[in-house]
Design a binder for these strands. Structure first.
Lengths: 195, 195
DNA sequence: ATGCACATGTAATAAGTTACATGATTCA
DNA sequence: TGAATCATGTAACTTATTACATGTGCAT
């Protein structure tokens, strides 16, 4: 078996970090985990059901005051074994899908290339927003990391260190994207007015 | 309608750059276009058939010597209009899927974190290979760009400039990934031996 | 009463992957 | 004759998206 079905594994990692309900998982997938994996609540509930049937997770009904009851999921032994197995299984270096790159090459055949400039500026702003959000998260959750320093000075526990290095990856990605979109805008400006 | 169904649009762009058969498209999706969009030949033949039915592309039987005949596809007016419409339609800044990031956070719950080191090294090598491939392509197809210079000196035609800026994006992405994977390896080394 | 955050789902559709299948021509 | 490249497809399955659907409790 090759590296497939990663949503299950992302859920397992998230539940190992902290047990929670489908709703809570959906919110995490809009935040920290969502930085490198997206999933809607519909998908999460469906997969969670299957994982429960397969014995990967345990469920516990949690009555709540002031809000609807919830089902709290936690990782069972079988789930942990499945995760370990997946972790030891090599995966293919991911194949990227960049809609925006398709649009940029497509702009050569567009009568109105100014539309692309506006679109690229929108995306650039979105990446700036995301970068600001990541940096705020880093300052809040990893205050020990000095600005300009790639790594914390003293070794911490593995879980936190690994969360931090993933966050640094997100930060590097957003910075790269902003720089590249600047390059795209400069390129568009160079031949745009002369058309 | 929001920005969906981008395979059709990637095919339209590719056919506008140069008409070709499904087989040729599949090979392009393993090369230049494949840098930012992947598709198998099965997918391409299926979508091409639908696009033909919708009048987006024209087909022409091309008898060949020394090899099987092929169907050459080219973009019809309806297809060009569909592309323009999609180009002018804003798309969401893409949601990323990084299996490797899931694995990295998951490694905190793995008995054998050395397995992740090997996996990260494999990925790092794959990104180095891809970077070398991109740089070779740049040297071959855009010799006017000086090393260390972000952009060509004299304005070229839009199609080439846009292809080049997309390639520069691929190069920036691979460089960022290699640097980040170095950071990951350093992080793993810091707490790995002490476990 | 209206809207919002919390909470959990089903159904239909679209998109993507994997396995299977065929056939031509060239070259060793 | 056997492998490699070129060329085109079908079928089954899995995954992801979109639309629809329901209900609690709190605050305004």
């Amino acid at each position: 078996m090759i590296g497939v079905m990663a949503l299950e594994h992302a859920i397992l990692v998230s539940l190992l970090e902290k047990p929670g309900s489908g709703y809570e998982l959906a919110r995490r997938f809009d935040r920290s985990i969502g930085y490198f994996w997206t999933a809607t609540h519909q998908q999460i509930y469906r997969v969670l059901k299957r994982m429960e049937q397969d014995g990967w997770v345990d469920v516990r009904d949690v009555p709540q005051q002031g809000r609807p009851d919830k089902k709290e999921y936690s990782v069972a032994d079988l789930g942990r074994a499945a995760l370990t197995s997946w972790l030891h299984d090599p995966i293919e270096p991911e194949s990227v899908r960049h809609d925006l790159a398709v649009k940029i090459r497509g702009a050569a055949f567009d009568d109105d290339p100014a539309a692309l400039t506006r679109e690229v500026e929108r995306h650039r702003q979105a990446h700036r927003d995301r970068l600001a959000h990541y940096l705020a998260g880093q300052a809040r959750d990893f205050p020990e990391s000095e600005p300009g320093e790639a790594a914390p000075r003293a070794p911490l526990d593995a879980e936190r260190e690994l969360q931090h290095v993933v966050l640094r990856g997100g930060i590097a990605y957003e910075r790269m994207m902003i720089d590249w979109l600047d390059d795209v805008l400069a390129t568009l400006a160079r031949f745009g007015p002369g058309r």
